[in-house]
Design a protein around this nucleic acid. Structure first.
Lengths: 257, 257
DNA sequence: GGAATAGTGTCTGTAAGACAATATACT
DNA sequence: AGTATATTGTCTTACAGACACTATTCC
């Protein structure tokens, strides 16, 4: 049938459930981490899953994602569809929709997947939710240390590649650091997401960041502690796009592309 | 609830229907066109809609999109998730999922939207389908010449911006022309999609295209007819990415961003 | 002192913007 | 002849890669 709802016969089509699931990324101890929830029921009992849940009766997938993110992390976010920053909002965007008929053994469940970027939040709040949630190093997940439920490994893989490419042409790296940060901290974001061998040298990185309009704005004051001289502090600027893009060294034989 | 399907209560959540809808773009007479279907039933009777339909019982959204595209246009495609070309396949990719509770007045319908790029196919086949389908110039739709059903105007708007940005950093422009083409034809693709004022000059465009590895491959033979000297013929190369990107002139006050 | 970090500067190759110029085919 | 197109080439500016160098803070 080529025409939407010209004649929808409920007997001809199966009932669907729809969830919004989120890959929340953050940096912990210089490594990229993602938030996972341990499953307390079948199927995939004991496996780890992306946080998420069903769409409410009067809720879009975007709204459900915003609600779930807030429940799990306390972060306030608005899903962004345009290439611009939303004031007061953590970055949250649609990643893609996963709808394989066999992805949930019980019934048709379509998952609308999201990607969120957050500054280090510390250990997750146990919260009103019985489920156990914790941060996992992305590297450990990719090396097969734990088993992910459903097709969440595929979702995570795609989410990771989305984040990596996003840092090339957008200023979203600032979402991983605090309100005020040094260029060294921002450099460590790129190193954690792209890997040590894919980033430009620190010197060339500094030149690039400072030359992009609206990437960072210098503020008064200097960093405290740590080895080396006190570093200047910056805040995130108004700009969204990095044009021309920050160049990522494409390592031959890396786990993606 | 933060845990998928820990206890799914069908009474607590509404039943959903899921559709795959496609924005199929092509070039006709030097202008960007999109395929639309006239609605023969309520709601939005007489309005125009993107071709699409419900997911079958054992069908993913990707598979449904592939099936619908083939039914409407005869084009064979495989949905691409990786940044690489799929041999023998027209380009078809997920755009995003639209799930506003009010988008269909009758029930919850979630639409997984897709973007497809095609060479000029001529007038659509009336086909086995009673619905009337035809190509519309994108420009005419944006200027409000016809009314689109549901939220399909929003989907089309997002799809257009996706196509525009895709031409910046990928070699997908070759999807709009035939097997063999001249650089002039490829240049007209960019002019149609980006607008006359957003493209580089033809000379600089040629230099860029020829310098990108795997964008085009020269073949023997020359073009026939038309004003000017015979032009060399090229085919699409193996490469996917344009690195650094083809630069689009960002016109201030354009309809997007 | 040694190690790590911050910040500045320089040389070089690549690529893009802005032209100029020439040749070819159709009307 | 006039117009549209194809193709090559040049000059200049912007920017990324690669390095060298100095300075500051903590151990």
């Amino acid at each position: 049938m080529s025409e939407i709802m010209s004649n929808y016969n409920p007997n001809e089509y199966p009932p669907f459930a729809v969830t919004a699931d989120i890959a929340v990324f953050t940096l912990r101890d210089g490594a990229l981490n993602v938030l996972l929830v341990e499953r307390g029921g079948e199927p995939y009992l004991g496996c780890w899953a992306l946080p998420g849940g069903f769409l409410g009766a009067d809720e879009s997938a975007d709204e459900a994602a915003e609600r779930e993110l807030e429940e799990e992390t306390g972060l306030v976010a608005e899903v962004s569809t345009r290439q611009q920053k939303i004031p007061g909002s953590v970055h949250l965007e649609q990643l893609g929709t996963f709808s394989s008929p066999k992805r949930d053994p019980r019934m048709r469940v379509v998952s609308v997947a999201y990607v969120a970027l957050a500054a280090d939040l510390g250990t997750p709040i146990a919260g009103d939710d019985a489920a156990y949630a914790r941060w996992w190093a992305v590297e450990d997940i990719l090396s097969g240390e734990i088993e992910l439920a459903f097709d969440h490994f595929d979702i995570l893989t795609l989410a990771l590649e989305r984040v990596r490419s996003k840092l090339e042409y957008s200023t979203l790296a600032t979402q991983f650091v605090g309100e005020e940060f040094t260029l060294g901290e921002l450099y460590r974001v790129y190193r954690a997401v792209w890997g040590e061998n894919a980033v430009p040298t620190l010197q060339n990185f500094r030149r690039k960041v400072l030359s992009v309009n609206g990437f960072v704005e210098q503020v008064d004051g200097y960093s405290e502690g740590g080895a080396g001289p006190k570093a200047r502090l910056y805040t995130s600027g108004d700009g969204w796009a990095i044009q021309p893009a920050m160049l990522r060294e494409v390592t031959i034989g890396s786990e993606f592309e």
